[in-house]
């Protein structure tokens, strides 16, 4: 793609999210979401491959429907209460419709089915944008509203469980990452009404971890599990670190990914939701299974190879690796700093 046109689309992507961030009126927020959707579609379909065109068509249909539902909910609220402000969405019917629309936008569980298919059709860079940057605008809207309790908790629990179960049988890395995104979003939505700052920090840490894992796959040029077994010959260091990144995504204790899960579980038990906390903690085990399988295929097996392939690590990679190294460090070692970050955000 021509770099000038690419810059226009990237500008649109940033502008849409920024407009949604700064708006207090529903119409302006809707406009930001629309700009965002419009700007990412040509980036998704830039290779004109049938898979990418299909993915962008599916993405367009879901996102346009979600945006229309958001505007419908806010106009219903305006008809009933006369308010257009984002934090004045008070009528129960409109807030439920709004919750459904935003859930469709971020891919929360009963409305999640588009996310694995869309992510499967993209290249890894666009997939990274899709699973990080595109979540920011809907989350900024979700955090400004006071939403319906039971609907949100139900969707969040379904989302963590489906995110775990759906990824079990996959061999494609992008689909596995999509299901991991669904599970993480479930965790974020679960704690949203009790402590929005905790949701924000979970989202930030999820973005770091996803950034490192996408950059890792991009550096190895892998999109399925069986090609992961070759990654040790390309770069032994990052191959040694990558199970740690994956386990951090799964939420094991000394790594960064444990922090948000820990604090979310403690917040849930503070709110006397012990049963829900238990269910979500158990559903994290389902996700942990496929993270373990990925790390097993990546580091713990050594497939037989010819000499020219096994010496590939002697050549330096041409790709820039600075973002990979920074995000890897962040996703491995942020846990001791987490109380400090919490006090900053709170």
């Amino acid at each position: 793609m021509n770099p000038y046109i690419m810059s226009i689309f990237l500008l649109g992507l940033g502008l849409g999210t920024t407009i949604t961030f700064m708006s207090s009126h529903w119409l302006l927020a809707w406009m930001g979401l629309e700009i965002n959707t419009l700007a990412i579609i040509p980036l998704m379909a830039q290779h004109h491959h049938p898979r990418s065109v299909e993915a962008s068509t599916k993405y367009f249909l879901t996102q346009a429907t979600a945006a229309a539902m958001i505007l419908f909910a806010s106009s219903t609220n305006a008809w009933i209460t006369g308010q257009w402000d984002i934090n004045e969405l008070s009528h129960p019917m409109s807030s439920t419709i709004m919750m459904l629309g935003l859930a469709l936008k971020i891919g929360l569980a009963p409305l999640h089915t588009w996310l694995p298919e869309v992510l499967q059709g993209l290249d890894l860079t666009t997939g990274l944008i899709m699973s990080t940057w595109q979540k920011l605008a809907p989350f900024s809207l979700l955090m400004q509203m006071n939403l319906n309790n039971s609907v949100m908790i139900t969707m969040a629990i379904m989302s963590t469980m489906i995110g775990g179960w759906g990824g079990l049988n996959q061999t494609q890395l992008r689909k596995i990452l999509a299901y991991s995104s669904i599970a993480h979003i479930g965790w974020m939505i679960l704690v949203l009404q009790f402590s929005p700052s905790l949701t924000l920090i979970t989202l930030m840490i999820y973005i770091f971890m996803t950034l490192s894992i996408f950059c890792l796959f991009k550096m190895n040029k892998t999109t399925s599990i069986n090609s992961l077994a070759m990654s040790w010959s390309k770069s032994p260091t990052i191959t040694a670190l990558s199970p740690l990144i994956l386990l951090s995504l799964g939420g094991l204790p000394p790594l960064t990914g444990f922090g948000p899960k820990w604090m979310i579980l403690s917040e849930l038990t503070k709110q006397d939701l012990n049963m829900i906390a238990t269910i979500t903690a158990l559903s994290a085990l389902l996700s942990l299974y496929f993270y373990l399988r990925l790390s097993y295929a990546m580091t713990l097996t050594l497939s037989p190879n010819t000499t020219p392939i096994t010496n590939q690590w002697r050549f330096n990679t041409k790709q820039p690796t600075i973002h990979l190294s920074i995000s890897t460090m962040l996703s491995l070692m942020l846990l001791p700093l987490l109380p400090g970050i919490m006090t900053i955000i709170n």
Partner: peptide, 19 residues
Amino acid sequence: FSACEASAGLALLVATSRT
């Protein structure tokens, strides 16, 4: 904005029928 959305949809229709 909805006109923009509709035109993007029709462009996707053309792209889909091509691929």
